[in-house]
Design a protein around this nucleic acid. Structure first.
Lengths: 102, 102
DNA sequence: ATTTAATTTAGCATTGATGCTAATTAGTGT
DNA sequence: ACACTAATTAGCATCAATGCTAAATTAAAT
């Protein structure tokens, strides 16, 4: 998993809002740029960051590009966060016993 | 919850490593600075970011300062992340039905 | 072939983040 | 009071992130 990129992606409010929106349904770049009152180029760069993290996917449809939420990657990341913050564990991250540092 | 600060706190690898370490047991600033091979002032600033997010707590004990993991805040944040990424919901974040944007 | 629409890339400026060394603060002990 | 230890704050430099406008790309329509 692309940890650094994933967390970086979540670190900006607009990107989290975009994720929340896409979770409800696909949308084009133009739609989202309008909805979040940010210029199209700026929104485009947010998309790039989210794509780098694998959290969204893009598909061109004629002149527009439709973005969609990548649920499997998102779930994987949610598991990693839970493992870090709440002790929950996913299949591929066993927790080795370890003593406190001196 | 301090969302922006929380996500910012998680956005740096060293801070995530510090959290993982503190989850296993308390530690002083000096211990962690040595363990992660970073200068004490730099580590101090990472602590500040984590404290701003409420993810860790500090307690002075003589000349040293002991940091500890704040499990309740961490769990709350894990819930928020799950809600954003995986559809899980905490008590204080109901999910309103909403149609796709046009 | 031109025009129009949607989006991205390029270029730039501004702000924020990171990490150092040096100086300061807080606490303990001599 | 002085010295010593642990940690923080101050000051600085460097790199990354954000967000704009203008220019380039991609696809469709006339």
């Amino acid at each position: 998993m692309r940890m650094n990129q994933s967390f970086k992606a979540l670190s900006h409010p607009t990107r989290r809002a975009v994720l929340a929106q896409l979770r409800k349904g696909d949308a084009t770049a133009g739609m989202l740029a309008a909805k979040f009152d940010v210029s199209a180029p700026t929104m485009s760069r947010h998309f790039q960051v989210l794509k780098d993290a694998g959290l969204i996917a893009a598909e061109r449809r004629g002149t527009e590009i439709v973005y969609s939420f990548n649920a499997s990657v998102a779930e994987e990341l949610a598991g990693a966060v839970a493992a870090l913050l709440a002790g929950a564990r996913t299949d591929e991250s066993p927790m080795p016993e370890q003593e406190s540092i001196r």
